[in-house]
Design a protein around this nucleic acid. Sequence first.
DNA 1: TTGTAAGCGTTATCAC
DNA 2: GTGATAACGCTTACAA
Lengths: 317, 317
Amino acid sequence: MVTLSDVAKEANVSKMTVSRVINHPEQVTKELRSLVEKAMKTLHYSPNSAARALAKNRTNVVKFIILENIDTTEPYYMNLLFGITQGLNRHQYALQLLTSVDEITKGNADGYIITGARSSDSEWLDKLDKPFVLFGENRYGYDYVDTDNKIGEQIATQYALNKNYQSIIFIGINEKEAFEYSREAGYINTLQSHNKVPKIFRLPNHSHSAQHFIDEHWKEFAHNTCFICASDRLATGVVRAIIAKGGEIPKDFGVIGFDGIFLDQVSHPKLTTVKQPIIKLGELLSDMLLQKISQSGAQQGELLIEPTLIKRDTTRN
Amino acid sequence: MVTLSDVAKEANVSKMTVSRVINHPEQVTKELRSLVEKAMKTLHYSPNSAARALAKNRTNVVKFIILENIDTTEPYYMNLLFGITQGLNRHQYALQLLTSVDEITKGNADGYIITGARSSDSEWLDKLDKPFVLFGENRYGYDYVDTDNKIGEQIATQYALNKNYQSIIFIGINEKEAFEYSREAGYINTLQSHNKVPKIFRLPNHSHSAQHFIDEHWKEFAHNTCFICASDRLATGVVRAIIAKGGEIPKDFGVIGFDGIFLDQVSHPKLTTVKQPIIKLGELLSDMLLQKISQSGAQQGELLIEPTLIKRDTTRN
DNA sequence: TTGTAAGCGTTATCAC
DNA sequence: GTGATAACGCTTACAA
C-alpha cells in the first residue's frame, strides 16, 4: 500500500505538504503542488480513508433510512439508492441502509439521508445529533430534495388539455402529506387557469384500489375523460379498469401516471407518465448531505427538480 | 465520544483487556470480562470503526458490483441489497455500490460481492486482488450463493403435474448460463421421471418477447397446457398473450413464474411463482464474504438455498 | 492471564 | 508557505 509518506519522499517534500495538496491546495505553491501531483500519479496513490476518517473524527459512512414499507416501493428506491451511492462514491463515502429507526444508533455515521418521513416523524428527527437531509418535500423547514411535484402535474394537466380531453379528473393518494398537496395544486392551478372545475378523488396508493374505484364509478365517467394520477401504481389500476370495461385508450380515455420507475414500462399499454429524475435526485441528496456535513450542519434549504412528461400510449398523440 | 480508554478506566483494567473482551473474549477471565462488559454498557460504548479499520489494515467497506443492466432488474436487486446490508450492518461494515467494473479500483474495500457475472467475466475476476463472492451459480469454482434453481423448477413442474395439466412446456431464457441450465434440468428431470417428453423454448428475458412468442404459436398449444417459465417477466408476457387470445387461466392454461419479486404481485391475475428468498440470499452473501475476508481469502464453496412455490391464480387450485 | 509500547495513515497545531 | 510533532482510537507484538 502506498501512503502519504511514500508520496512525500518521491516528491521530496514533507507529509504535510502532500496532505495540503489534497485538502487545501490553495495553501501550496504551484511548483510544489504540481510536483506532488505528479508523484501521486506515478505512485498511484489513493488515500486511506480509515486513517483520514480517524484523524478527522469522521466515519466516512452515511446512513440511508427508508421509513416506508419496502415491499411496495422497491423499484423506486433502487434508482434512488443508485444515485445516492454515485454521489457518495465520488467522495469516498460508503453507505449503510436501514429500514427501521431503531438501528440508527447502532454504529456510527456522519449523517443521514431519510426517505418516507411523515409529519409524525418530526418528533425524533428533531433529536438527531448528526446532520440529515430528507428525500421528499416537507413543510417543517428540514432540508430536502424532491421532484417539483406541482410543476409535474401542471405539465401533465396542460398536456391533457392540449390533447382535447374534455373532462380532466385527478386520482390522488389519500395521504395528508406535502407531496400530495403539491401535486394536487399543480392540477388545480392549471385547470382553473382554463376556467375548468377540478375534480379530485383520493385513494390508497395501490393499483387495485384504483381499479376498484373506476369500476364502481364507471357510469360517472363520460367518454373523452383524462385521468391524471398521482402515481403509476394508481394509473396502472385505472388503465386496467378502463380496459376491463371496454373503454378505448387513448381515444376515449386518457391516463397519465406519475413516477416513471419500472411500473410504467411493464404496464400495457405503455403508460404516459411524469417521470421523476430519481437517480439525479439521489445524487443531489448525497451532495447536499456531504456539503452539510462539511459545513458542520449548516442549513441547506430545499431543492426541487423539474420532472419530464414521457408521452406514450395512454394519451392521444 | 466514549473510547476504549474510557471503558478501561471505568472497569479498572488496561485498554488491551477491553480490546480482548471485544475481539478474543476467550482470552479473558470471566470476572474481568463481565466487569468490562458492564462498563461498556453503562458508558454506551461503541467501537470506532475507523480506528479499528486503520489498526487492522482494513477498510470496513465492501463493494457490491452489479454487472447487469439495472433498468431491467431493479426490483430484484433492491431486495438483494437489503439482505446484503443487513448482513454487513451486523459487522459494522458499510457498502459501496458499483455498476461498472471500471470503478472497482477507485477507493478501497476489503472485498467484493458480484452479481450478474457471465462466463466471459472470469478474465478479470481472476485478477482481483481482494476476496470476492458471486451471487449466482457458476461452474468455474468461484464461491457463490444462489437459489437452488434446479429444485425450484422441479417443484414447479411437479406441481403442474399434480394439477393434471396434460402438456407441460418450459419457457426458458436464451442465455448459456449455469442458472438457466439448472432450471431446465429441474424441469427435464421431473418430466422424464413421469415418462413425459420435455419441450423447451428459449427467449430473451422480456415480457413482450414471451407475449409475442405465445401469440405467434398459439395454435400449437392445446388446452390443458401449463407453461413453466424461467422468470416472472416471461410468465407475465405468457399470461398476457393467453388472455388476449381468450384462453382461460387457470382452467385451460396454467402459468408458473420464477423469482417472486414485485412483478408477480403487480401482475393480474396474480402469478403462481417460484419465490427466491432474495433477502436471505443477500444476508448469506455478506456472511460468506465477511467470513472469507476474516479467513484471508479461504475458499468458501457454494451455497444453494431452496425456493418455495407460491400458489396463486395462474394455476388450478 | 494481563499490561506496556509501538504503530496503523492521516490531519491539526504550532513553529519556522 | 512549509515542516516537525502530536494526536485520532484501536490492535499487534512482546514483556511481565
